[in-house]
Write a protein that binds this DNA or RNA. Structure first.
Length: 375
RNA sequence: GUGUUAUUAGCUUAGUUGGUUAAAGCGUCAGAUUGUGGAUCUGAAGAUCACGGGUUCGAGUCCCGUAUAGCACC
């Protein structure tokens, strides 16, 4: 049977590993490489679906198993007709499995072979996530792409801990695959782990490829390590991932990391960074980060980014947005979120064009120079 | 006019029987943020303790006077 999600390779950049492609899903095609906005609780914070489509031009968004399971409960989302109906988003959705929450809520969790026991951050109640349970939840939510249940090791972790964790994650991935029933409507992706140890990454990739998932994610990097470590693992692991399937790098969202990911041959990235820093008064621009909350912009009547085509930049000034942020007005968060998300989706539009022109390496160097990065 | 209460950081306040470098919240200024427990978190600057005297080894704290504000009564 044809999987719910397939990858079509259009072009490989002749000067790098970057690939231009299309991911076909039940709710439409995704042009890759792509950045995916995160909507943890069935909403990209402060954005309507119309804004995501028309202003941000988002092709796919993420949501989260852990959070929706706890509130409102996956049964309610299922009753609503699934996540797409519930939140009025008719394009593709990817649900994260809650593995990262297991990591970030580590003071409350107990990991065993069976799964993870944890306490709800909302009311302290005890819950058990097993691979089978996570599949039940993700099937109820009904996203196009669902993630297998994994453990994301903290940085740094010892070789032994990382190895045991990675091997358990592989066993969990197998159980996820066996428990997954809606294969015609939802594609289950495996998550490669192995921390910052090259041989563990190789082992993880090999074992997961043997399980034949319709797509693969690179997890457990961009967890606080130095950039050199990140790049080393990225460039080591990505070539291990199958060429005929989508490659998803989890948790990456700064402009430089996104370009590096594309260069390495990654197709999909997601991150909370653009929406999170928006809520704290910061904009991403083609000339670097602008902390618009700062006093420097009190009388700056120019747009956040003069090169940006978004609703915010077409209509509002830095001084006004600064005022909204300082006054704690909701509109400030909304305008910055629109801009930051549009900045990244547009960056990836450019990346796709540059790949088609075999020019992504040059583009990276120009971008770094302009953005103020020193590679 | 008389009595009374108050006056401490930009604002609102804490400050024990007088005892190290006067504290906090908000505000201001800045930093952080990468598969969202984040309209969050961290840090910094900012005070002649209304003013002038006095008592004391030592005063934001006790005494006197002045100023300003509130309240009560003429």
């Amino acid at each position: 049977m044809k999987p719910a999600v397939t990858y079509e390779l259009l072009h490989i950049d002749k000067n790098s590993g970057a690939r231009r492609g299309v991911v076909h899903t039940p709710h439409g095609d995704i042009q890759t490489p792509i950045f995916m906005p995160v909507g943890t609780q069935a909403t990209v914070k402060s954005m309507t679906p119309e804004e995501l489509k028309e202003e941000v031009k988002a092709q796919i968004i993420l949501s989260n198993t852990y959070h929706l399971y706890l509130r409102p409960g996956h049964e309610i989302v299922k009753e609503a007709g699934g996540l797409h109906n519930f939140m009025k988003w008719d394009r593709p959705i990817l649900t994260d499995c809650g593995g990262f929450q297991v990591f970030s809520l580590s003071d409350l969790r107990t990991i065993s072979e069976e799964g993870v026991e944890f306490r709800s951050h909302l009311d302290g109640s005890k819950h058990l996530f097993t691979p089978e349970k996570v599949m039940e939840i993700e099937e109820a939510l009904g996203a196009d792409i669902i993630m297998s249940f994994d453990e994301c090791c903290p940085y740094p972790s010892t070789y032994e801990y990382t190895k045991n964790s990675m091997e358990r994650t592989t066993r969990w991935a197998k159980r996820c695959k066996e428990a997954h029933t809606t294969t015609d409507k939802q594609a289950l992706f495996g998550i490669i782990q192995g921390g910052f140890y090259e041989d563990l990454r190789e082992q993880s990739a090999k074992d997961l490829i043997d399980l034949d998932f319709p797509g693969y994610a690179l997890g457990g990097i961009s967890v606080g390590e130095p950039k050199e470590e990140f790049l080393k693992m990225l460039y080591h692991t990505t070539p291990l991932m199958p060429e005929n399937k989508p490659r998803y790098l989890m948790g990456v969202g700064s402009p430089d990391y996104l370009i590096e990911a594309a260069l390495a041959g990654i197709d999909m990235c997601d991150c909370v960074l653009p929406t999170r820093i928006a809520r704290n008064g910061t904009a991403m621009t083609s000339h670097g980060k602008v902390v618009v909350r700062n006093a420097t912009y009190e009388r700056d009547f120019s747009p956040l980014d003069p090169e940006c085509d978004c609703y915010t930049c077409k209509n509002y000034t830095r001084a006004y947005i600064r005022h909204l942020v300082k006054a704690n007005e909701i509109l400030g968060v909304r305008l910055l979120s629109i801009h930051n998300l549009r900045f990244l989706t547009k960056l990836m539009e450019k990346v796709r064009i540059e790949i088609e022109n075999d020019n992504l390496l040059n583009f990276r160097d120009e971008f770094y120079q302009k953005y103020g990065y020193t590679k």
